[in-house]
């Protein structure tokens, strides 16, 4: 049961690694494809996992960003993410983790209330993105965004650190968690 820690390995030269965690295999795969299509100066590596912890045997590069994908249509995907969160070191939440909620567009299909995921993201002080991954355009935009965030998390953007991300990604409408 290894806990995932950030910065525990040496970074690969010009590589940025993202880990997508979620039960929606097909959507994750599509998102990964969209990300790899993005034009990016760094070498991208996308790892997909259904849940955490990851097997300790595998030789994997340093993980720069974890994105937890929750499908609002399925409670199972939320439970799965909640359980996976136990296997992540707290320091990951200093800007190197994010939540992605998909399926909010079809309100009538939702099994998970939107506030539940907002709350979850708040408690972990991590940014939350809403995106319907089933729609290609939205997915492409989200992929672009994630690539940018990943580059920052991997330290490929001089002058900006992952530590800045939580405050930078906070939208002005939702108050900071400490204000609540």
């Amino acid at each position: 049961m290894s806990v995932l820690r950030p910065l525990d390995k040496q970074p690969g030269l010009n590589t940025a690694t993202i880990l997508l965690v979620g039960t929606e295999d097909a959507l994750l795969q599509q998102l990964a494809d969209s990300m790899l299509k993005e034009d990016c100066a760094s070498e991208l590596r996308v790892h997909l996992a259904r849940s955490l912890p990851l097997p300790s045997s595998a030789n994997r590069p340093r993980i720069d960003l974890i994105v937890f994908v929750v499908n609002l249509h399925s409670k199972y995907s939320l439970r799965n993410v909640e359980e996976s969160l136990h296997h992540v070191d707290a320091t990951f939440f200093l800007g190197k983790a994010a939540f992605l909620a998909t399926g909010a567009g079809r309100e009538s299909h939702c099994s998970v209330h939107r506030n539940t995921i907002v709350k979850l993201a708040h408690t972990y002080r991590s940014p939350l993105f809403f995106c319907d991954l089933e729609i290609e355009d939205f997915r492409a935009t989200m992929a672009q965004r994630l690539v940018r965030v990943l580059q920052i998390c991997a330290g490929h953007v001089p002058g900006v650190s992952a530590l800045n991300l939580p405050s930078l990604l906070r939208s002005s409408e939702t108050p900071a968690p400490e204000d609540l």
């Binding site: 991208l44 996992a49 595998a58 994997r60």
Partner: peptide, 26 residues
């Protein structure tokens, strides 16, 4: 379940897992 759901990350293991995908400028 864990073994089935978690693909080997680096592709070294091969098998049924999805190999990591590499893109970018070489």
């Amino acid at each position: 379940e864990q073994a089935a759901t978690e693909p080997p990350d680096s592709g070294a293991g091969g098998g049924e897992g999805r190999p990591p995908q590499v893109a970018g400028a070489q």
